[in-house]
Amino acid sequence: MSERTDHDAQRTDAERDLVEAAAASHGRIEPMTEVLRHAGERLPLVGQGQTRRHWELLATVASQDLVAARVLEPHLDATTILEQAGVSVPQGLLGVYASESGGQTVRAVQSGSAWKLNGTKPWCSLGSVCSAAVVTAIVGDEDAAASGALRRRAFLVDLEAGRQSGAVRDSGERWPALGLSAVTSTALEFHEVNAVPVGDPGWYLTRPGFAWGGISVAACWLGGAIRLMRTLQAREPRDDFAAAARGRVDRMLAAAAALMTEAARHLEEGTLDGDAAEIAAERLRGTIAETCTEVIRVVGEATGPGPLAGDAAHARAVADLQLYVRQHHAGRDDARLGRLLAERPGWSW
């Protein structure tokens, strides 16, 4: 699950365009957004016989530039969601907005055959430049007997039409991040915005690809760690400490890549679904997040302050990875895995 197994000669023209856009990004979103806005050739998606290729593409793009990967991953996730739901995939750059933090949420109301969205959706990365997005919203009455998961439904929203009518707008919040600084994240406000249902209520969280999408994000983290390994590779080991650092990072990356490859195999064989998918995703995401944290530490100790102070690309890659990998919630996600294993003792050791 690294560039050694993803040879350029085996890539399609569309995949090569994405890798080239990532190489030209240098922390900017424009090269990748431009390619995705006009993408015509089909890209490899999870669960359609090309899962390993999909994850290798994300890791390869991320190893060039994590900002580029942060643009690509949700676009492919949205495409996968829409195809799984049987909804036509629109042209342009796509996003997925499912956060409901801080008590903010979006409600969906049906009027005849039409659906309208109202409310605030927080943490909408690239919300100001995406053409359309899959957005989760609450349906039904507040006092409905159904659980929160069953009352949540996904919708496809044409953000360009919304902006043109003034119905969807940025909240004006400033994005102060140092890592992934070009991937501006803000809140979007919806006022009677037209929306197309994507799956039934509850489908978004219970669909086959929900856990798979979490692994796709981990593939990007892995690519970010591979980028930091290159800083070590560019330096000739001067002593046993430097050689050990290089060997340790290589060993960790190889183990993480093997986990990704194994997960892709099980997924395509049809054995990575339901409980198995949830548990595998938590195990894999936690392992790769821990690997990334350790790679940042080992590379930093082995190279000293030089690359962080004098190599802008390396310093940016470290900051980008530190922020991106925090999508893993560390002990909280481990606790979720522990509860899953307690409820399903057959999956434990």
Rank of each mutant, 00 (worst) to 15 (best):
G40D: 09
Y204N: 10
A78L: 01
A255L: 12
A22P: 04
Q50A: 13
D320C: 04
A23T: 01
A255Q: 13
G40Q: 09
A21D: 01
P345D: 09
A144Y: 03
A132T: 10
G223V: 00
W347G: 00
G338F: 02
V299D: 06
A182D: 14
S25T: 00
L323W: 06
V198W: 11
W175G: 01
A302M: 08
L72F: 00
A243V: 01
D239Q: 13
V46G: 03
V295N: 08
A280E: 13
G202D: 08
A195F: 04
V217R: 15
A258R: 03
R42Q: 14
R336I: 06
A263Q: 09
S63D: 08
G300L: 08
R246Y: 01
R339V: 14
E83R: 15
S216V: 00
T136E: 07
G92D: 10
V217D: 02
T206L: 12
A161F: 07
D200V: 14
L57T: 12
S88K: 13
D141G: 06
L232P: 02
W349Q: 11
L323R: 13
S147Y: 03
G119Y: 11
T80V: 01
G119F: 03
V318N: 08
G310H: 11
R285D: 06
T271I: 10
E142K: 13
P307Y: 05
R316A: 14
R53W: 01
A319L: 13
A315K: 03
A335V: 07
R4I: 08
D273W: 05
S128I: 05
S2K: 10
Q48N: 05
